[in-house]
Deep mutational scan, measured.
Amino acid sequence: MPSETPQAEVGPTGCPHRSGPHSAKGSLEKGSPEDKEAKEPLWIRPDAPSRCTWQLGRPASESPHHHTAPAKSPKILPDILKKIGDTPMVRINKIGKKFGLKCELLAKCEFFNAGGSVKDRISLRMIEDAERDGTLKPGDTIIEPTSGNTGIGLALAAAVRGYRCIIVMPEKMSSEKVDVLRALGAEIVRTPTNARFDSPESHVGVAWRLKNEIPNSHILDQYRNASNPLAHYDTTADEILQQCDGKLDMLVASVGTGGTITGIARKLKEKCPGCRIIGVDPEGSILAEPEELNQTEQTTYEVEGIGYDFIPTVLDRTVVDKWFKSNDEEAFTFARMLIAQEGLLCGGSAGSTVAVAVKAAQELQEGQRCVVILPDSVRNYMTKFLSDRWMLQKGFLKEEDLTEKKPWWWHLRVQELGLSAPLTVLPTITCGHTIEILREKGFDQAPVVDEAGVILGMVTLGNMLSSLLAGKVQPSDQVGKVIYKQFKQIRLTDTLGRLSHILEMDHFALVV
């Protein structure tokens, strides 16, 4: 994948999101292997301009796509893939009243899908469409860049269908997702969380590099694949309309690839034109409109599966009536509230959605109805927002919020430890010299600072030695090549209790 991002070429006709291997024109390309080798690009942008032909009021008969309808489940399912879809609609009884809503608040519980998330729908649909058009064949390999849930859905379907599955996901995604993927037989590649989507090191860039190296491999490409919004247009939206008897006044959905909100909203605009569509985008993402909503100094966020630093091709923002931004604290607070007060075992993005819903639905009156999409299960986040310690460490809970008995030293300040200034190293000294210094002084790690004293990161003896043994660096290389740029900081005025929580999850903390 090139470091400079080429513009994806656009073909003359058809839909841009065809499933299957992508040609340089962004659509299915038939021909000899030699032709494909000559024409197939190194990668295709996940934010390529959409060429979708959908228009409100256009006859369904003019759609270029294969459409399906929700099917009634048999008493005995032939395999677990038949437990994807037909998820329950559940009334939220307490939270709406707590925040003064007059309307009825309903939750579409997508964590009841077989793999635990709304992404099971698009995973199965992308595979079925690729099999139907002859792209996927027995023994082929599926590769997908994902925040985890699409990966789980694909790995689940691949396990049943017999495909090899490789999932490329950023490091910030939970260990629970990784464990589930491994249990399903998927191979996992992790990428830096802070890598831009168009960087060769991003999950998108690495996935395309693997595709170019592995024979008979395919990126189904949830960011561009029409099967993504079509899955929701054909099934999720129809289920909502049936469950609500066609009567709903507002739908609120958090947005990642945009397939969920695009597919549902398009069908609702056709069948229930008075329904307002509300999009939820986390602070630090750029999906919301108008652009002024996205202006923030924050560039990272903890909530998973929603928000991006690019506009995915499948996201149709014209069908969203209003956007709201959400933050991590309210997302996790509301997710825990949904679990504790409503018994809905949902993930953090569901918290984002409901946090926005109780604001947006203030305009609705008694007798009206708001539906929220709860995308995934708490299963993926047992060591994250479900953990009091994690919430404390991230600053989303305060010590006084917890009532468990603490040891005698818990409320003492870090400054009472009488710490001395640490050994520091410059980023320009060599790895070999740094190892000598650390061994001589008896230290395992040291902060790396520039000549102005600005902290650049941390270097550890173990990481340097393993990097040297693996051949990633040489003793003569500058130590700046092996620094940890993500590390926890703590102030002298913070409590030892807070430091204790940090050290339970990290090997060190830097006192500043």
Score class of each variant (00 low, 15 high):
P2S: 15
P2F: 14
S3N: 10
E4I: 10
E4H: 11
T5V: 03
T5P: 10
T5R: 10
P6I: 04
Q7F: 11
Q7P: 10
Q7N: 09
A8G: 08
A8E: 11
A8C: 06
E9A: 15
V10K: 12
V10H: 02
G11C: 09
G11W: 09
G11E: 10
G11Y: 12
G11K: 08
P12R: 15
T13A: 14
T13C: 04
T13V: 09
G14L: 13
G14W: 09
G14D: 13
G14Q: 12
C15H: 10
C15L: 11
C15W: 09
C15Q: 07
H17C: 04
P21K: 11
H22W: 06
S23D: 10
S23R: 10
A24H: 12
A24E: 12
K25Q: 15
G26L: 09
G26K: 10
G26R: 10
S27V: 14
S27R: 07
L28Q: 09
L28I: 14
E29W: 15
K30P: 10
K30E: 11
G31A: 11
P33Q: 11
P33Y: 10
E34Y: 10
K36I: 12
K36N: 15
K36M: 12
E37K: 14
A38P: 10
A38T: 14
K39G: 04
P41G: 10
P41A: 12
L42M: 11
L42D: 11
I44Q: 15
I44E: 11
R45F: 06
P46M: 01
D47P: 06
D47R: 05
D47F: 01
A48V: 12
A48T: 14
P49G: 03
S50G: 06
S50C: 02
S50F: 02
R51F: 07
C52Q: 00
T53S: 12
T53I: 14
T53E: 09
T53N: 11
W54H: 06
Q55W: 05
Q55P: 06
L56W: 09
R58D: 12
R58P: 10
R58G: 06
R58M: 10
R58A: 12
P59E: 11
P59Q: 10
S61M: 10
S61P: 14
S61Y: 13
E62Y: 15
S63V: 05
S63R: 03
P64W: 03
H65C: 00
H65P: 06
H66L: 13
A69E: 12
A69D: 10
A69P: 10
P70D: 11
A71F: 12
P74D: 10
P74T: 13
K75D: 04
I76K: 13
L77C: 08
L77R: 07
L77H: 04
P78T: 12
P78C: 09
D79Q: 08
D79S: 15
I80N: 07
L81F: 09
L81E: 12
L81W: 03
K82D: 05
K82H: 10
K82G: 10
K83H: 10
I84D: 08
I84T: 12
I84P: 08
G85W: 06
D86Q: 10
T87E: 00
T87R: 01
P88T: 08
P88W: 04
M89R: 05
V90E: 02
V90A: 05
R91W: 02
R91H: 04
R91V: 03
I92S: 05
I95E: 00
I95A: 03
G96A: 15
G96C: 15
K98D: 10
K98C: 05
F99A: 13
G100P: 03
G100F: 12
G100Q: 12
G100C: 08
L101F: 06
L101M: 06
C103Y: 01
E104Q: 14
L105K: 03
L105M: 04
L106N: 08
A107P: 07
K108F: 02
K108I: 00
C109I: 04
E110I: 01
E110A: 02
N113W: 00
N113T: 02
G116V: 13
S117K: 05
S117V: 03
V118K: 07
V118F: 07
V118W: 06
V118S: 07
K119P: 01
K119N: 02
K119S: 02
R121L: 01
I122A: 05
S123Y: 07
S123K: 07
L124W: 14
R125M: 06
M126D: 06
I127Q: 06
D129E: 15
A130M: 00
E131V: 11
E131W: 00
R132M: 12
R132C: 15
D133L: 13
G134A: 10
G134W: 07
T135Y: 15
L136D: 00
K137N: 13
G139N: 07
T141R: 09
I142C: 05
I143H: 00
I143S: 00
E144R: 02
E144Y: 02
E144W: 00
P145Q: 00
P145K: 00
P145V: 03
T146M: 02
S147Q: 02
N149L: 04
N149M: 03
G151Y: 00
L154A: 04
A155V: 02
A157I: 07
A158V: 04
A158N: 02
A159F: 08
A159D: 02
A159N: 07
V160C: 07
R161S: 14
R161N: 10
G162W: 03
G162M: 01
G162C: 03
Y163C: 01
Y163A: 00
R164K: 11
R164L: 07
R164D: 04
R164M: 00
I166P: 01
I166L: 10
I166D: 04
I166Y: 08
I167R: 08
V168K: 02
V168Y: 04
M169Q: 02
P170A: 05
P170T: 06
E171P: 07
E171V: 12
E171M: 07
E171L: 02
K172R: 09
S175D: 10
S175G: 06
K177D: 00
K177C: 00
V178G: 04
V178D: 05
V178C: 09
D179W: 04
D179L: 04
V180W: 00
V180S: 08
V180K: 02
L181Q: 00
R182P: 02
R182D: 05
A183G: 14
A183Q: 05
L184Y: 07
A186N: 01
E187Y: 08
V189I: 07
V189G: 07
R190T: 04
R190N: 07
T191R: 02
T191E: 01
P192Y: 06
P192I: 06
P192E: 08
P192Q: 06
P192A: 04
T193M: 12
N194P: 10
N194I: 10
R196P: 10
R196W: 08
R196Y: 09
F197I: 07
F197G: 05
D198Q: 07
S199K: 06
S199M: 03
S199F: 06
S202I: 02
H203M: 07
V204Q: 08
V206M: 14
V206Y: 04
W208M: 08
L210S: 02
L210A: 04
K211C: 04
K211Y: 06
N212E: 10
N212R: 14
N212M: 12
N212A: 05
E213I: 08
N216L: 06
N216W: 05
S217Q: 06
S217G: 09
H218S: 03
I219K: 02
L220C: 04
Q222H: 02
Y223S: 02
R224P: 06
R224H: 08
N225L: 02
N225S: 05
A226L: 07
S227A: 11
S227Q: 10
P229D: 04
P229F: 02
L230N: 05
L230Y: 09
L230D: 05
L230W: 04
A231H: 14
A231L: 03
H232A: 00
H232K: 00
H232Q: 01
D234Y: 10
D234V: 03
T236N: 14
A237M: 02
E239T: 00
I240C: 00
Q242H: 11
Q242D: 12
Q242K: 14
Q243L: 12
Q243I: 06
Q243K: 12
C244S: 02
C244R: 06
C244W: 03
C244G: 02
D245I: 08
D245V: 09
G246N: 05
L248Q: 09
M250R: 02
L251F: 07
V252I: 13
S254Y: 02
S254P: 10
V255L: 03
V255D: 02
G256Y: 00
G256L: 00
T257N: 07
T257L: 05
G258T: 01
G259A: 03
G259T: 00
G259K: 02
T260N: 06
T260V: 05
T260E: 00
T260D: 00
T260P: 02
I261Y: 03
G263D: 00
I264H: 03
I264R: 04
A265R: 04
A265L: 02
R266G: 04
L268M: 07
L268N: 01
L268H: 03
E270W: 03
E270G: 06
K271W: 08
C272N: 05
C272L: 11
C272S: 09
C272Q: 10
P273A: 05
P273H: 08
G274L: 09
R276L: 12
